[in-house]
Design a protein around this nucleic acid. Sequence first.
RNA 1: GCUCCUGUAGUUCAAUGGAUAGAAUGCAUCCUUGCGGAGGAUGUGAUGUAGGUUCGAUUCCUACCAGGAGCACCA
Length: 554
Amino acid sequence: MISDILKEKLQKSLGKLGLSADKVIFEHPGDFSHGDYSTNIALILSKKEKNSPKELAEKIVENLEKPKEVEKIDVAGAGFINFHLTKEFFASSLKDATKESFGKNKTLAGKKVILEYTDPNPFKIFHIGHLMTNTIGESLSRIAEFGGADVRRVNYQGDVGLHIAKAIWSILKDKKKVETNEDLGEAYSKGSKSFEEDEKAKEEIIEINKKIYSREDEEINRVYDQGKEISLDNFEKMYEKLGTEFDKLFFESEAGKEGREIVESNANLFQKSDGAIVFKGENYGLHTRVFINSVGLPTYEAKELGLAKIKDEYFSYDESYVISGNEVNAYFDVLLEVMKHVYEKEGFANKTTHIGHGMLRLSEGKMSSRTGDVISADSLLGEIQDKVLEVMEEREVENREEVAEMVAISALKYSILKQGIGRDIIFNFDKSISFEGDSGPYLQYTTVRAKSVLDIAKAKGLKPSNELPDDWESIEIERMLYKFPEVILRAWQDKSPQLISKFLIDLAGSFNGFYATQKIVEEGGEYKIFLTKAVANTLKNGLHLLGIKIPEKM
RNA sequence: GCUCCUGUAGUUCAAUGGAUAGAAUGCAUCCUUGCGGAGGAUGUGAUGUAGGUUCGAUUCCUACCAGGAGCACCA
């Protein structure tokens, strides 16, 4: 790595001056005029020395042996030492950027990583919140794969619990045939409403809930089994659309059993309180949470406790990630504390990380799944797709619907992944989904365009070559491409797909600028064609990491 | 009330303690020759308030103001 070479030379120079530094940090300046690598070492060391940072920087540079990859070294600003790389370095680094494997690394080689995400509940609507969790989880899974990890994607679905009792109560009461997912959604929101407003309904629902667990009532079992099947089929279709293939589905019914046993066999850790079994988190700076409720049923907490073990039996993981909305952050802290004690030997708590993402909220107000006031993923995607079709109207494209769906999903996924994971997304139907500028479709469009250029070059018999033309001056694109692998490393380290989004949008912008000012396909343009190939390949790999598909034409 | 998160152009988002706080969108002006205009170029415009730490603060600390989430049998 070039940065290692720079570090070594710099240490030597410091040595000559009788100085030393434990760690020398190189970074890429935001502004290209400040070079390709930069270090603030002089600013830090000048504190101990009496020299001014700028003078010290100049002394360091005087004693610095310039590696062949470096064009020039200069001192700027308050005392930064900036390194400008040579065009030969860029030209040779481009070779990597045209490789299929560009961006892959080995930081997670041999590691078993399990990621749980999406977690919709049968009998309920797959809403836009699930869309958000899925998008983030899928992207992180792919980034882990690029790091060489053995990855398992898992999904944990609530197939028991009050929400189902509510839906079943409504179905039984109306004696209605349930055939579609919409029927289920309707039944749920109706049952949910009655649960809040009608005491008698509430009692009946609680009664049904017990029978769902015990499976003693044939009528209930029949409705339950049928509804679950309809729901899961519907989810499968959605996963396919979104580009996620789960390796394993877990269900609350199994996790509940396991969890209850674990709570019972660790009785000393828990306390009885008002008929429930609780964990007093106050002793650990946390709060109290119920694990087994007063009716004797395991809550989500106990289920998740069981799930950690079930996951390990399935795939003895080194790292486990649970991706969900950040509304459960506090509860997850409690859970991890309990896991520390319960699974002391197994060390699950240390291997498990909860990633809480922000909420998708509507500018018009809050979304509530209890009142049935939710926006389904289907309706949102449909609406975006209609807008895409409008833009596509005048274009000649085969498979219109299919392409429009790809573009719609890309628009949505990008708008989720372009910002920090923990932050809420304020959603405005008219404005939020963009097809231009800082958007998924822009990235797709740029990739398709670059590929189209390559096709034309090929048809004209012009072959890409990374041999530099005599009068070549290195351009922004070259100075960006070689950073892609570093970006991916950091994206995993920080669990921030947004770093990849940012990188791709900058790269695409830079390429579009290049495209607008230069003719690429021409005699003597072999290097520019090579550059285009590198950009297309990098965009392709980057978009893959965001979970975005690329159409042939759009 | 307690805990956590967030306050950056009109709007939606960036900025591992660094250099002139970046994009996009909006608005204004411009780009037929040359390969996809879902594009390109130029201009416009912002760190909630008050202190502190630091050579250097959007970033760290304190207080305040504003918004959001969580705080016992939902998940």
